[in-house]
Design a binder for these strands. Sequence first.
DNA 1: ATCATTTTTGAATACGCATTCATAGCCTTG
DNA 2: CAAGGCTATGAATGCGTATTCAAAAATGAT
Lengths: 336, 336
Amino acid sequence: MKKLAGTAAKPLTSRQLAALIGVSQSAVSRAFTPGSSIAPDLRARILSGARNYGYQPNAIASMLTTRRTNIVGIVVSDMQNPFYPTLIERLTQGLQRAGLQSLLFNISPGSSVEDQLVALRTYNVDAVVVISATVLNAKTLAWATEGRKAVLLNRLGSDDITSICCDNTDGARMIVDHLFAVGHRRIGYVAGLTKTAIGMLRYSAFSARLAELGMRLVGTASSESYSYDAGWRGALDLLPQAPDAIVFASDILALGGLDALQRVGAAGIGATGFDDIPMAAWPGYSLTTYRQPIAAIVERTVELLRRPDLGPAQLFTLKGELIIRESSQVGGMAPA
Amino acid sequence: MKKLAGTAAKPLTSRQLAALIGVSQSAVSRAFTPGSSIAPDLRARILSGARNYGYQPNAIASMLTTRRTNIVGIVVSDMQNPFYPTLIERLTQGLQRAGLQSLLFNISPGSSVEDQLVALRTYNVDAVVVISATVLNAKTLAWATEGRKAVLLNRLGSDDITSICCDNTDGARMIVDHLFAVGHRRIGYVAGLTKTAIGMLRYSAFSARLAELGMRLVGTASSESYSYDAGWRGALDLLPQAPDAIVFASDILALGGLDALQRVGAAGIGATGFDDIPMAAWPGYSLTTYRQPIAAIVERTVELLRRPDLGPAQLFTLKGELIIRESSQVGGMAPA
DNA sequence: ATCATTTTTGAATACGCATTCATAGCCTTG
DNA sequence: CAAGGCTATGAATGCGTATTCAAAAATGAT
């Protein structure tokens, strides 16, 4: 005799538990509300009774009175770049440890972005984390985050919204310095989305440092996305310029580029990425890259979202770490 | 003068809107409830007024009365295997189109799994989708899904819970048949988690078909996870057996295996995967694999979850598609 | 034109909890 | 020992919507 879904007994209410224990409903509520005025032993008695009878507060009902949901809306538009699944995984775990839930919004192109985000508003999420979603224009962003905490990750917004980014300038600089130290002089650049603030930032930091060191920017390929294919094409586009090394705006681009170089027998050209996705460490790629400080980004995000109020909008820039592997050496990934 | 977060005016309630329009609160509620008894023109007038004044029903409040949240809890324990981000992305998009929201639970090892899933219960999710989470034992699974709809993806549970899987038997068979047709005879197998039902299923279907065709299973390497590193080690373990080709239980294993073979100069050995993750198509790997029918899986899942009741537990087995690339040819990925 | 039936509407209530308000108990201090 | 100040508790109320119930309006049939 199997139990049919939906047949389960309705869960206990605080009032029922109160009756069972012989206290008031208020007492039960207070027992579960940290910092409320209740005698320690009463609280203990109630909590123990709750465990006993299997009572758990109904979060929905409490949302209605407190007007807080403890839900964070996470808005993503690209899970194909392997950097983001990792970030999302760590972020949801971090939020969860802080007692916050993650409502995931995957924006798909096509239908209206606002339509896909109405639930941010109707479900009253406390906060919104936007992960690098370039499909959100400033207006939609403002609408979606209106009246709630909002944080942008890996994206720069207007100056009235808090952003958390890795230090792109530092990253670009470390990469260039490293290439210089290794002996590369003629550098090519494969950009990601050049229309984004982050994309432009990485590029300008990169080219500025290049100039400072007197290195030569032999060419730039811009691509329409951060993808393997775009990296592949970008690398090939730069070949005629005969670069010593190619700087890719992200790891996923670099992987495509490396494969392309290999395919055309130009594996001697150096390459660097940005992010340090798991695949960058794979022996077949062994990609030198700037590792994004995921832990720090998550930590800062969670810390901000725990606050009752974010305070004035800020830009947090967190330093990453240069991971030197084989792809950037002179001779690149050429077989020994 | 920037608006501070939290300063936003409280959204309109149905009662306020009713007052503005000159109807009752019930009418407003009915206007937003499909199938409720209300005159078409009244509904139109109210909906137009709502648009006008910017009223949107408060989902939280309606959850309290209807006892339905339209929230689906998605439980994952491994986003590192690139197959899952894709699945999750498509799934949340599919759910969203059906008006369902996705609450994401990323189980991290360490603290109690139940603790990480309490919100499934306190937030009253309508349904739970468990994606291949092996960390959930049957008891915890029952607890987490008690009284709500539940679907397992890529995982087999006890027989009282609905599962949706690709057709592992068909996949194993097509792979073996293909290897046979191409001319491979001595086959090695790199298993994933052999203790899981799916893992065992794939293996037994594989070896059964092998036997039917009179091919030789020269060795099996079992690994502790579906990961690149495990595939790498598995492939190396099989080398002494001198297989013509190695069948990997998943793409991510195969990628590691291919790199290992390449590294030791054994790139002539054929290889196949399972899943068809994006990287399988990359020229550097060009992995022959069985493509999971993600669209069909998502479609079926969403269709099930829209129902008021799942009905009796079933196992849905959806056929995938053999994608033939270079890695399975005789001579494998060896340079021409 | 009248009555029976159906449809449409509004008032009232319940959902489960947090919180305010008022009270009863307790401790402190003069 | 009394008065004042605190703390711990319970009763009552409200959060915003869906739904039930009863009444009103509209429709149909004779």
